[in-house]
Nucleic acid binder design. Structure first.
Lengths: 147, 147
DNA sequence: TTACCTGCAAACTCTTTGCACCGCA
DNA sequence: TGCGGTGCAAAGAGTTTGCAGGTAA
């Protein structure tokens, strides 16, 4: 999760991308670029209602998709859900689903080592790894698994 | 892709799962369990129309979901599409999307080696790997990549 | 002032469900 | 004949779009 951005930083960021600054956009950006963790449209709409940010569902969709188009967020469709999931981590990474809380955690590429025995005729452009797991204890270590 | 099943084999298979045998089910099973390659409901409905198999869209959905419930197929939701994708390979495996044809190919677990540097507190229950790739030549070899 | 953003509602897409009819056993 | 499968249509869920009015620059 990124450290929180000020309103001015958000305004500057939007302008630098050629996007108009509106109160709804600033409010949503502060939430989805800083506070929120893999939000869906529902999460964002609910947050807005609870924080007296007046915004319609359509504007939530439009704003999130605008941020994706501007390269400030990514959007994913995961196997466990039929909702679009937005992510303020725009770098290449993978995902882990905590099966108990249904929360998504980012896995940095360095945490995942992958070897594909593919024919060289295949030019891999992207690999997406989605791990489902449950927490069991707190010992730090690494685990090797064949999948 | 499995070798094709006879009508009698399909009837026997359905009965052994306690499922009633109907002409629509036999026809759809022959297609989705043998011929079809990662079909969606649309693919199946289109095939039915082109092959004079009279079946409604609802029955296609119901039949495919019945086969999934019976353990004869799996269903996936992939990142590149908002459609359910059905698969007659019910064993654990991964997927490769041919970005040019949009076809899905199965990757057997042995083709994919995966090492996750997770804390031991995580008990991994499933790993799904989704590879996007383009074909480039025909030399057989293996490729190592960090993801 | 003008371009474009917002809110609302309706449209759209994909999937599921309800119900009368029909077919398998 | 009876259970349950089928077809049709409608309902649901999630997302996108069209348009009138409002706001930023």
């Amino acid at each position: 999760m990124k450290s929180c951005l000020s309103v001015d930083q958000i305004r500057t960021m939007l302008r630098s991308k050629g996007l108009q600054v509106t109160s709804q956009r600033v409010a949503l950006c502060r939430f989805v670029l800083c506070e929120a963790d893999h939000p869906t449209v529902d999460t964002v709409k609910l947050w807005a209602e609870e924080n007296d940010v007046q915004v319609s569902q359509a504007t939530v969709y439009n704003t999130l998709n605008m941020l994706v188009d501007a390269g400030l967020m990514k959007v994913f469709r995961f196997p466990h859900s039929d909702r679009m999931v937005y992510d303020n981590n725009v770098h290449h990474h993978h995902h882990l689903l905590d099966e108990e809380t249904n929360h998504i955690l980012d896995l940095e590429p360095g945490q995942v080592n992958f070897y594909a025995g593919l024919s060289k005729e295949w030019d891999i452009s992207e690999v997406a790894v989605f791990v489902r797991a449950k927490r069991r204890s707190s010992k730090m270590d690494t685990a090797r698994q064949n999948i």
